[in-house]
Simulated assay, not measured.
Amino acid sequence: MIRPRVIPILLLQDGGLVKGEKFKKHEYVGDPINAVKIFNDSYADEISLLDIDCTANNREPNYALIKEVASEAFMPMSYGGGLNKIEQVRKILHSGVEKVIFNTSAFQNRDLITQTAREFGSSSTVVSIDVKGSLFGGKKVFVANGKKATGQDPVSFARKMEALGAGEVILTAIDKEGTMSGYDTDLIRQVAAAVNIPVIANGGAGKLSHFKEAFQAGAAAAAAGSMFVFVGSIKGVLINYPTEEQLNSI
């Protein structure tokens, strides 16, 4: 049996890798090219590169850097950040990236999801759904790096994205992101049960058992950031990835 995927998510800011907590307080943790080389040597299943500056600053993706990272990556790579036109999608996918990830544009420009799926296939079309608790109770979808409330329920939003052509969903619990305290398994369970496309759990992984909990809740794959860039209680920076033996033991 093929084991579920385990995916490092790398955050880009000003061309460097950063990591924060609950989408805030980002600090520099290294060079993306060096990180990709380490994940190559560790035989990572896949990597996701998210530029958190593009939408905030209304700028184009850094195509040169994306192409350079993709040329170094021996594993499948997905990219998200600042994508709001099909021309940008074409440029990214023609640079060696296998999948594109939509977040803010999935809410503001839903035709782009369908356009991408029609031209490149649902397997290349990923929607990142960021979720956090609402002041009025319940959990809602946020966009623009977690700064803009949409009022959307994550379950119904995931269903809409699937209907538009998304072939995969990255489901991030903002309140858990960077805490290394475990995934929001209730959220995973609700969304995974509502759609027929793979749900990638993200936000909160800190140890191998957390992956198992996500898979048991219905996640088809598990993603993490802090777990793959920090080690120890003081969070020393060290790019790392579990061994195949460790992953097979989950």
Rank of each mutant, 00 (worst) to 15 (best):
M1T: 04
I2D: 15
I2W: 10
P4A: 05
R5C: 10
I7S: 01
L11G: 05
L12N: 00
G16P: 07
K19V: 01
G20F: 01
K22S: 09
K22C: 08
F23E: 05
F23K: 02
F23W: 08
K25H: 12
H26Q: 05
Y28Q: 09
Y28L: 10
Y28F: 08
Y28A: 06
V29C: 07
G30M: 04
P32F: 06
P32W: 11
N34S: 13
V36T: 07
K37I: 11
K37G: 08
F39L: 15
S42A: 15
Y43T: 06
A44H: 15
A44P: 13
I47A: 06
D51S: 06
D51Q: 07
I52C: 01
C54F: 09
N58G: 14
P61K: 03
N62R: 10
N62M: 11
A64I: 08
A64N: 09
I66Q: 15
V69L: 03
F74S: 00
M75C: 11
M75R: 13
P76A: 01
S78C: 02
Y79C: 07
Y79H: 10
G80Q: 10
G81E: 06
G81L: 03
G82P: 13
G82L: 12
K85Y: 13
K85P: 09
Q88Y: 08
Q88E: 13
V89S: 10
R90N: 12
R90A: 10
I92P: 09
H94L: 11
S95R: 06
V97D: 02
V97Y: 03
I101S: 05
F107Y: 15
N109M: 05
N109R: 09
R110L: 07
D111K: 12
T114H: 09
Q115P: 11
T116P: 02
R118Q: 12
R118T: 08
E119D: 09
F120P: 11
T125Q: 12
T125R: 14
S128T: 00
I129R: 09
V131R: 02
K132W: 10
L135H: 05
F136I: 14
G138M: 14
G138D: 13
K139D: 12
K139N: 14
F142W: 00
F142V: 00
F142D: 00
F142C: 00
V143S: 04
N145G: 15
A149T: 06
A149P: 04
G151R: 03
D153Q: 13
P154E: 11
V155I: 15
R159T: 00
R159G: 03
K160V: 12
L171H: 13
L171S: 14
D175L: 04
K176D: 08
T179A: 09
M180Y: 09
D184Q: 07
L187G: 14
Q190F: 01
A194N: 11
V195L: 02
V195C: 02
I197V: 08
I197W: 07
V199W: 01
G203I: 13
G206V: 09
K207Y: 10
S209Y: 12
F211H: 03
F211G: 05
E213D: 15
Q216L: 08
G218T: 05
A219G: 06
A219K: 05
A219F: 04
A222K: 00
S226V: 04
S226W: 05
G232Y: 08
G232P: 04
S233F: 07
I234D: 06
V237C: 01
L238N: 14
I239P: 15
N240K: 13
N240S: 11
Y241G: 02
E244F: 14
E244I: 15
Q246F: 01
Q246I: 01
N248P: 11
I250E: 12
